[in-house]
């Protein structure tokens, strides 16, 4: 079985947000919607201070609570583990949004952002991309499943200037992600929630 997952090397990440931006061009997400983004944390006191960058995205959990709570079956999980929202079935109840411990789902509100885009009127790019969105539904990272189905990495992995993100089959011991996890210390976010997230971090 294939189980897709991501491994993010925090030693490499410099918080440039190229992933955030390229995700926006790949997916054409409207204003305010981020399938991925990088958080900044500062610890310590001058001059012994550490600033760390933490990219976050949907964890495509093995135990996806979002799927369990969805009343309409809009949130589905593929056999390879990718969690998707079918916006034809989504009624915008936001149960998943509340249930997700990671808060990496976004509700696309019923406002003018799909009509006005980023500039006040839609660009040709936005006209193409916004066909995939429906206001009043929940949206989230798809692991770029259309790219993955064509044998490509998700856009954020492909673009990363520091090669911090790796994508692959966690069930395949020979995949780059599995090898990294076997060689280096790693952690998942909020493992205590029992969600079995498929995004791992190398400190």
């Amino acid at each position: 079985m294939v189980r897709y997952g991501m491994v993010i090397d925090l030693k490499r990440c410099i918080g440039c947000q190229s992933c955030t931006v390229t995700c926006k061009q790949e997916n054409g997400t409207p204003r305010g919607i981020f399938y991925t983004k990088t958080l900044v944390k500062e610890e310590g006191k001058f001059p012994n201070v550490k600033r760390t960058f933490l990219p976050v995205l949907c964890n495509h959990c093995e135990e996806a609570v979002c799927k369990k709570v969805c009343p309409t079956g809009a949130t589905e999980q593929r056999e390879d583990g990718i969690v998707l929202v079918d916006n034809e079935k989504c009624v915008g109840c936001r149960a998943c949004y509340v249930a997700c411990p990671y808060k990496n789902r976004y509700y696309l509100p019923k406002d003018d952002r799909l009509k006005k885009g980023y500039f006040g009127k839609l660009t040709p790019f936005e006209e193409i991309k916004y066909r995939n969105f429906k206001e009043g539904t929940v949206v989230k990272c798809t692991f770029c499943h259309e790219r993955v189905d064509r044998g490509l990495d998700p856009a954020c992995v492909d673009v990363c200037p520091t090669n911090a993100r790796k994508f692959g089959d966690l069930d395949d011991p020979k995949s780059e992600v599995s090898i990294l996890l076997s060689e280096r210390n790693h952690f998942q976010l909020l493992p205590e929630m029992g969600t079995k997230p498929c995004v791992y971090y190398l400190p």
Partner: peptide, 19 residues
């Protein structure tokens, strides 16, 4: 080397900016 910084990733918004 096949990668882009955030600025390079954002470039297409220049092409279609109505301003």
């Amino acid at each position: 080397k096949g990668r882009l910084c955030p600025r390079g990733s954002a470039g297409l918004q220049i092409l279609y900016d109505p301003n």
